[in-house]
Design a protein around this nucleic acid. Structure first.
Length: 317
DNA sequence: CGCGTTTGACCCGCGC
DNA sequence: GCGCGGGTCAAACGCG
């Protein structure tokens, strides 16, 4: 069941080179997060009822290549993720869970407010590493009888809660699920999503030492919207960068993700789309009214954000 | 042949 | 304790 490809869930696989112009700005469709407890506020915010300037969107490639860095990007967002505040929990409680995954653990992340880039993210990376070593190290073919049924018996440490990497998610208007971001991803799973006709795909960065994962799913409310959730921080430059693609333009920022470079990078990123309804979901999303009333930015809040978002864009609701 | 996807089973956390 | 749902594993398979 979960296996069947949805018509909408095309086989984009690794290539998707031809990912067309993905509209970053969210159009007027109700891009609701597909998870059960939807946060009405998020819906609202994403909704962009006023539409957007159709001329003002950049291709996702541009943007993502620009961002190469999910490493950098997420790094920045990690920080904000670690912030404990969540956008209006409201009654749903769960509030767009995916977008809102604080990952660092419920309530455990009081520390690390918005200060340094290194702190929370590096920590998280370490955890991920250990987690990986727990499972990943398995010699590929469990030498014994390869019965699928008994195979997946992994001694996972009990009592130790699975630590999740900081995540950040964003929604994009795209027909393609797997958005090109300069990194190579290997799909390792697909699951049907409850309450959604669209499956969720799980990808892992193919780089050996890199444990970044991403989940891609399509909003069932608005099938044109793809929700991508990144987990972790890339420990390596983007292959695209190495190939000297357009992404290389930002390579310096990515390769040396110092707080300042990240900041600069983000500034660039956002500055490039001053009139875009760029949206980034996150645990601590905050909605920013930007230049004009109908342009809305949803960005992770706190910490870096403050550095990232040019002051003139920032504006408290 | 290498790499990536597919896919069903398993593990784990959480809510009831 | 049980069931559900999310997340992961890895053999099988497909493709270049």
């Amino acid at each position: 069941m979960s296996g069947n490809k949805d018509p909408s869930h095309q086989d984009y696989s690794h290539g998707n080179h031809g990912m067309g112009a993905i509209r970053f700005p969210f159009s007027n469709s109700p891009s609701i997060y597909s998870q059960p407890p939807c946060n009405p506020e998020i819906d609202q915010a994403i909704g962009n009822p006023h539409g957007f300037d159709p001329t003002s969107y950049m291709s996702f490639t541009e943007c993502l290549q620009a961002s190469t860095g999910y490493g950098a990007l997420s790094k920045a967002f990690d920080l904000s993720c670690s912030s404990s505040e969540v956008l209006a929990p409201g009654d749903g409680g769960g509030t767009a869970n995916e977008l809102v995954e604080s990952s660092t653990g419920h309530g455990g992340n009081s520390a690390t407010p918005n200060s340094s880039v290194s702190s929370s993210s590096t920590e998280a990376v370490g955890e991920e590493d250990s987690e990986r070593s727990k499972k990943g190290q398995q010699p590929k073919g469990c030498d014994d009888g390869m019965e699928r049924s008994k195979k997946v018996t992994k001694p996972r440490k009990k009592g130790e809660k699975r630590q999740r990497e900081p995540r950040f998610a964003f929604m994009t208007k795209s027909e393609i699920d797997n958005l090109e971001d300069g990194y190579r991803w290997r799909k390792y799973g697909q699951k049907a999503v409850k309450n959604s006709p669209y499956p969720r795909s799980y990808y892992r960065c193919t780089s050996q030492k890199c444990s970044v994962k991403k989940r891609v799913e399509r909003s069932f409310q608005d099938p044109t919207t793809v929700i991508t959730t990144y987990e972790g921080v890339h420990t390596h430059p983007s292959p695209a960068t190495l190939r000297g693609s357009a992404a290389s333009m930002l390579a310096p920022s990515i390769l040396t993700p110092t707080p300042s470079s990240v900041t600069n990078f983000h500034q660039d990123l956002f500055m490039q789309m001053p009139s875009t309804n760029f949206h980034l979901g996150d645990a601590s999303s905050v909605y920013l009214q930007s230049l004009s009333h109908n342009q809305r930015l949803q960005l992770p809040d706190y910490g870096l954000l403050q550095d990232v978002i040019p002051p003139f864009i920032r504006k408290q609701p």
